[in-house]
Structures are given as C-alpha cells and as structure tokens.
C-alpha cells in the first residue's frame, strides 16, 4: 500500500502524517507538491493534511482547491482511489466539491484544541473498515472553522446513504448537544462520499497514533486502509 501526502503552502500536519505512515505503519509514503499535476503511478491512498493552506484566506480551503493537484486528486478519487482529508484537508475537499457541505467558524468563535470522543457511525468507508459501528475513539481536534453545515435536504441524503462517518459524542458514545464542540450540524465530525473511498474529518487521527501522544485510536483509520 503506497501513500502520498499533499503539501500546500501553509500545510502543517503533512510531516505528522508522513511520520505515522512511514515510522509507525512502516509503509511507503511520499510528498506531492500542490503545483504537481498528477498523482504518481502506484499510489493507493492520498492524504490531504491539516494546516492553514494559503493562510485560510477568503475561506478555509478555497484557494487550495484551485491548485493543480486538486484536479488530479479529483480524478484519482473518481477512479476509486482512497482519499483522506484531515482538518484543513477536509475543508479543501468540501471546497473542491469532493464532499458535500461547507465549514463555518466554530459557534464559540474560538480556536478549539482538545481531545474529543467520536462515535464511528459506519464501517463501510475505506478508512473505518477495522472499526465497529458505535465504537468510540478519542482523537484530538484543533480548529477554528470546524462547524460543519449542510442544509436539511443534504443532511437527509447523508443519512440515507450512510455518509456520516464520525459524530462528536461523550465517552459513552452518546451523541449529545454537550459533546458538540463547534456547532456542527448533527454533531458531524466526519463524512464520506457516496462510494465511501473519500473521507473528510476534522479530528486529527495522525495525532493519536502513538501511545506517547496519549491515544492510539487514530491508527485504526490508517490500518483500515491497509486491510483492504
């Protein structure tokens, strides 16, 4: 299984993702610069990492979507390639139209950086196959714009197609208003496309992949891809 991590000006979780894939999972991984026009042959999974691409100017992810590599990522995804967008990477996938909905400022208007509990809502995606439905993970969030918005019709489509992947929950896995850190519709922390090969999530699994960091729950996402 070969991985690639896309690097934009302002990406700052690219090295963390690279480290987890290379050192923790022991899998081949390379960086792709955002000006590149192609995903290299032989890549099975593309990670769009977190950070502040283009300084979050205009809207988070809005400028990054016009980088040449995003056309290549879209072609890769259409062909069934596995794509994981984390935090700013999720915002970029939304702006690029690879996933539905949009991000807004957190309702508190604060940058929130803390561990949260997530309830896995479906194991049908490329990144959740090794989890069980209802399983609770503890993974940190770190964002100011993670307030996921989609209109009522869009939410219904997400529910009908089992596209909600993670919801903010309490430690028991109950999806409650109190467990929602940022105001996201339906406590949504992560979603997938209809096919399930493209996943976007605000929490950072790469920051919860080694015991020294306090949680290894994030490893399951990377291991799920390997299991395919």
């Amino acid at each position: 299984m070969s991985f690639a991590v896309v690097v934009f000006p302002g990406s700052n979780c690219d090295r963390d993702c690279f480290h987890v894939i290379d050192k923790v999972l022991g899998q081949p991984v390379e960086y792709i610069w955002h000006r590149d026009h192609e995903i290299p042959d032989g890549i099975d999974c593309v990670i769009v990492p977190g950070g502040f691409s283009y300084g979050d100017y205009l809207r988070s992810g809005a400028v990054a979507k016009m980088s040449p590599i995003m056309d290549a990522v879209a072609r890769f995804a259409r062909a069934g390639g596995k794509v994981l967008g984390i935090c700013n990477g999720f915002q970029i996938l939304l702006e690029a139209g690879l996933l539905p909905g949009a991000m807004q400022r957190n309702t508190s208007l604060e940058f929130i950086c803390k561990p949260v509990h997530l309830r896995c809502a479906t194991r049908r995606t490329a990144f959740t196959g090794s989890l069980s439905e209802g399983q609770v993970l503890q993974i940190p969030i770190a964002h100011a714009e993670g307030n996921y918005f989609i209109d009522d019709d869009g939410l219904e489509r997400l529910q009908d197609n089992a596209q909600i992947v993670f919801q903010y929950a309490n430690a028991m896995g109950e999806v409650t208003v109190g467990a929602n850190p940022n105001g996201s519709v339906h406590n949504i922390a992560g979603i997938c496309n209809e096919a399930g090969n493209v996943v976007g999530m605000m929490p950072h699994p790469e920051r919860a992949a080694e015991s020294i960091l306090g949680s290894v729950d994030g490893l399951a996402l990377f291991e799920s891809v390997l299991g395919q």
Partner: peptide, 13 residues
C-alpha cells in the same frame, strides 16, 4: 454574507 438561515456566529457576538 451568510445565506439567510445559516448561523452567523460573528454577527451574534
């Protein structure tokens, strides 16, 4: 501007 019906946290503050 945010569409009507879309929450505007900054406006509220």
């Amino acid at each position: 501007r945010n569409r009507k019906g879309v929450f505007d946290p900054e406006g509220k503050v």
